[in-house]
Design a protein around this nucleic acid. Structure first.
Lengths: 209, 209
DNA sequence: CAGAAAAAGTGCGTGCACGCAAGTTTGCGT
DNA sequence: ACGCAAACTTGCGTGCACGCACTTTTTCTG
């Protein structure tokens, strides 16, 4: 029940942060406002988030880590590790595009928010490590960590490029082509890691018998 | 000449930061002290570094990015990409251990400094991208970026684990084995990425003819 | 060589992150 | 049901990062 309450205030805080940012623009939101809107003290806000940007972005990226991990775990056992990971990520990063269309617009508009959004990639690292370790049979958690970290790094790269090009296409007024959809960009960015993922899977199989 | 002066003040700042941190302990160093010791205004210090930890750590990690890139480029052309990258990194992360032995002790002692030190890994990403792209023949800069980011992420993991275990071995008073030397740890952490590096190299070769 | 343009340094003000030391709530054992 | 211990919240104080406007220095150009 303690956990429930913590999660509740966390969501209240990030929801308030996003709402206020949408209403007034990101630069006209003081920390005190967010805290007040969520019904906690400013100091408490700071126990949950260490920057306004983090709070705002968390409203969009909240449970991505857990969702990605679940998606990886749910792929059928007979598809390769690389395919499982890549498709799980593509799914999870494309599906939630709907809920906050204007939120994404807000994020792309502000460099600080863009950076915070891209940095949330680090949050998928630990859940993804567990998911990969599960598929590899828990023989070598070390390898799983490395692969998860690499995948996270690649996703960070893809998101960065995507935000960059979409932002550019705004300012350039359409002269710049959006450079491909996010799913395509993700697939292309993750492709070079596929050999490493599949090699690890083969080695795990070999080790198991 | 402009660049020279910038680099000079940058080094003056980080050197002063490290010296003061060693003299008084990291928590007894104010930003104003660093600025004064380097002969610039506090505001200027802030144009170079956005945290004390960054300034201190930069004294140790300064040119690592460029050195790693050069080391990768200097490996003979007939060794595989994976071997070239891994050995270059191992070299560059082991050689500079001598200059600041006490500096590393200082860093391991403070969590904030540990984090800053580990985060410097990101700085090798761009130089390493260029080095890898050079070896791949510049056909696909995108792949080079992904690989460099993954390598950087793996190095970050290795450094994190290394600092963690060495710090633990301090507090535990020797009960915990240092868990292997840094070179071994780096090799073990980078190993899972070797298939990806070599696969990219093969593909580059195939594309070239 | 003068004078403009660009770039780096500086002073100031604001909002913030975070340590610390209370106070308050929650959950558990008896 | 009671009370205690651990976890969470809060107020306060300090140092800091960073935007902005301005001065000083460096570089470029006619």
């Amino acid at each position: 029940m303690r956990e429930q309450k913590k999660q509740a205030t966390r969501e209240a805080l990030s929801a308030a942060a996003l709402r206020l940012a949408l209403e007034r623009g990101p630069d006209n939101v003081r920390v005190d406002d967010i805290a007040e809107a969520a019904g906690v003290s400013p100091r408490t806000y700071n126990n949950y988030f260490s920057s306004r940007e983090q709070a705002i972005v968390a409203a969009v990226t909240g449970e991505r880590g857990a969702r990605v991990a679940a998606a990886v775990a749910d792929r059928p056992a007979d598809v390769g590790l690389a395919a499982a990971v890549i498709e799980a990520i593509v799914d999870q990063y494309t599906a939630p595009g709907e809920p906050g269309r204007d939120a994404l617009l807000l994020i792309t508009a502000s460099p600080a928010l863009r950076e915070a959004f891209v940095d949330t990639t680090g949050a998928i690292e630990h859940p993804l490590t567990d998911a990969i370790a599960g598929r590899l049979g828990d023989t070598d958690p070390h390898t799983a960590r490395v692969l998860a970290a690499s995948v996270a790094a690649a996703v960070r790269l893809a998101l960065g490029r995507w935000l960059q090009t979409t932002a550019a296409s705004f300012t350039a007024g359409g002269l710049v082509v959006p450079s491909g959809s996010l799913p395509d960009l993700l697939r292309a960015t993750l492709a070079p890691l596929a050999p490493a993922l599949d090699a690890a899977e083969q080695q795990a199989l070999r080790r198991r018998r």
